[in-house]
Design a protein around this nucleic acid. Structure first.
Length: 588
RNA sequence: GCGCUUGUAGCUCAGAUGGAUAGAGCGUUGGAUUCCGGUUCCAGAGGCCGGGGGUUCGAAUCCUCCCAAGCGCGCCA
């Protein structure tokens, strides 16, 4: 067995600084070892037909780079002790032999793990391939030829986007990016309804403010309960929108030609237009561009929703009661049936929701991602079950439910109320902490945990702020590259990456190998925080490298090799941040 | 009351398909650094993984019961 790596390990034992080894991911190596182990097993008398060896990334560096638990899984099958099976496997693997350019050592450890160590040659090749791939390093092909639709934001245009919408928007856009990086062709879609009650009240709210603006003598009234009573113009709807932006829109309409002050529909249209422009502007600041805005109204215009009611009736999943049409959600495991069409003849929101998803499925998407707030948690299962009952492949629908955001300032939660219009808008948040920080903070936690957004931390430009830590690592590398290029360091030299043997260099190379798999995992689970966490590992590994391995001032051949490693690190950080929609500055 | 989500270090959170001694950041304590950017690095302390029971070679992870928090439970969206 070739033990280049082993020798390095030996020599490294005297190195004074133990490193926190980041866990690396490597699907290509797994594929290779997977078939090697099956090969060895067949020589040992064969495993069950459906047996698949499983791999894991050990957290402890003493356990190698990749571990396999096949021996433990097969203990019953072979009726032997796991460690004995592991020893046999090791012997057979070494006799194959496994490629010494990939694997430098196989060890049996613990209850029966097989621990594999990667050869340095393999790491050097991986480093070269990072540099070769450049700006596309991290892209994979599993989604190639497939189409995905990500539906997100989907706020009706009744007001500016709030902090809560921000989490939705950033999650959706980033999931879309992740899918693109795994090969999918992705459409970003915004679903809205301008025909409902909300929008009617919006129009009436603007209208009332307008009437007050053109007639200072207009009577006023008090609405709301003490102590939150507010004085509003007399025509103002009881549950109207109180935000200042309503008055702004109204004032802009004063003196406009052809405006009929008695037609609330006109005010609604005007408000919708202004607010949508505002929303698109806010999204644009975060780098978000929708491919389509889907109006719920089109589902009625095309008659699709009524076809669906008929199909449910045919399937005996819908029935009439009290003048309304009911959907048998009890058939989907719910406690009660729910109304699909009100006795007034208007559908409830559930019907168009099902219709919209049927429409998406009919458009042939292979994967449909919905980003919903926690308040939808009880309703989306009906939608999914409904489309399935109609004969569609509902498994293509992936619903991401995110919990709500609490802004924290000086250790205290910031109180927000939509009703009183005391919410913090997304624009205000970005004004305060910046676009990059806003995106990152929304992405760095798992969607299904409550997000505590610490404004003080977000504004801090120091290592305590995780965004700055990542961006700083990138800026620092660029600074080194600039310096090296000024000095003409490594010019005309072919970098010999085999000179990279320091612990910190090895760790960094292993970490850099993880980007593609990190993106794949984040994409398949629709969980961007996994990528954010990985990038932090990269920044940590780089900082350790930076601290122990100099470039400028080092012997020129070694410096040239380290420059390559630094370049590769910058690429990984830049590509990863790009997927997250965050800038990778050259200077800070 | 019912459903879904959550409960891991003082705080904010990771923890992959069930794997080896449960991890990080902040904070705290102590140290390093004449230097390519001090927006850096290293180390220590700190844990009944909400609690009980179960499944198995092995459980923070799966099942079950209990406790606590958030969200929802309308002919509102």
């Amino acid at each position: 067995m070739i033990t280049v790596r082993e020798r390095n390990l030996e020599s490294r034992k005297v190195v004074d600084c133990p490193f926190t080894i980041s866990r690396l991911r490597n699907p290509f190596m797994q594929t290779y070892l997977h078939s090697a182990i099956l090969g060895a097993l067949s020589e040992m008398g064969g495993a069950p037909d459906d047996f698949q060896p499983e791999f894991q990334q050990p957290g402890n560096p003493d356990h190698g780079d990749l571990a396999c638990n096949a021996a433990m899984q097969l203990a019953r099958h072979f009726r032997k002790a796991p460690r004995q099976i592991a020893e046999d496997l090791k012997i057979h693997l070494e006799a194959l032999p496994v490629d010494p350019d990939r694997i430098s050592a196989i060890e049996v450890a613990g209850p029966g793990f097989l621990n594999f160590r990667f050869s340095d040659v393999y790491l050097f090749k991986a480093l070269s391939s990072v540099l070769e791939a450049g700006a596309s390093y991290g892209r994979t092909h599993s989604g190639e030829g497939k189409r995905a639709l990500v539906e997100f934001v989907s706020a009706n245009p009744t007001g500016p986007l709030t902090v809560g919408h921000g989490r939705n928007a950033v999650l959706g856009d980033t999931v879309a990016n992740l899918l693109e990086w795994t090969g999918f062709e992705v459409d970003r879609e915004y679903y809205f309804n301008d025909a409902g009650r909300q929008m009617r009240i919006l129009g009436e709210s603007v209208q009332a403010r307008y009437l007050a603006a053109v007639n200072p003598d207009l009577a006023t009234k008090m609405i709301g309960d003490p102590p939150d009573e507010t004085s509003v113009p007399e025509p103002f709807p009881e549950d109207g929108y109180l935000g200042g932006y309503i008055t702004d829109i109204a004032i802009k309409l004063v003196g406009q030609d052809g405006l009929d002050p008695n037609d609330s529909e006109q005010f609604k249209k005007a408000a919708e237009k202004t607010i949508f422009a505002d929303i698109e502007g806010t999204l644009g600041r975060m780098g978000i561009k929708m491919d389509a805005f889907f109006n719920e109204k089109s589902l009625y215009d095309s008659g699709q929703v009524w076809d669906i009611v008929e199909k449910f009736r045919e399937l005996d999943l819908a029935y009439d009661k009290d003048g309304a049409v009911w959907l048998k959600t009890t058939a989907f495991g719910k406690e009660q049936d729910t109304v699909l069409v009100k006795s007034s003849g208007e559908p409830t929101y559930r019907l168009p929701d099902i219709g919209y998803h049927v429409d998406k499925l009919k458009r042939g998407y292979d994967r449909i991602v919905d980003i919903f707030g926690a308040d939808h948690i009880a309703t989306f299962p009906d939608v999914v079950a409904g489309t399935r009952a109609l004969g569609f492949d509902a498994d293509r629908i992936d619903v991401v439910i995110y919990q709500f955001v609490t802004l924290v300032r000086s250790g205290q939660p910031v109180k927000m109320s939509t009703r009183k219009a005391t919410f913090v808008t997304l624009d205000e948040l970005m004004n305060e902490v910046g676009e990059d920080v806003t995106r990152f903070f929304f992405l760095m936690r798992s969607p299904n945990t409550h997000l505590e957004f610490d404004l003080d931390l977000a504004k801090e430009a120091s290592d305590t702020n995780p965004v700055f830590y990542l961006q700083y690592a990138h800026a620092r590398i660029q600074s080194i590259l600039r310096k090296a290029s000024e000095l003409g360091l490594g010019n005309g030299l072919e970098a010999d990456v085999t000179l990279l043997t320091h612990d910190a260099e090895i760790t960094l190379m292993k970490t850099l190998m993880g980007l593609p798999d990190s993106i794949v995992r984040a994409a398949t689970h629709s969980e961007p925080h996994r990528l954010a966490g990985y990038l932090r590992e990269v920044a940590v590994a780089f900082s350790q490298f930076y601290n122990h391995c100099r470039i400028v001032g080092e012997e020129e051949k070694l410096a040239a090799a380290r420059l390559q490693l630094a370049r590769a690190t910058a690429l990984v950080l830049c590509n990863g941040l790009t997927v997250l929609g965050i800038s990778a500055p050259d200077r800070m």
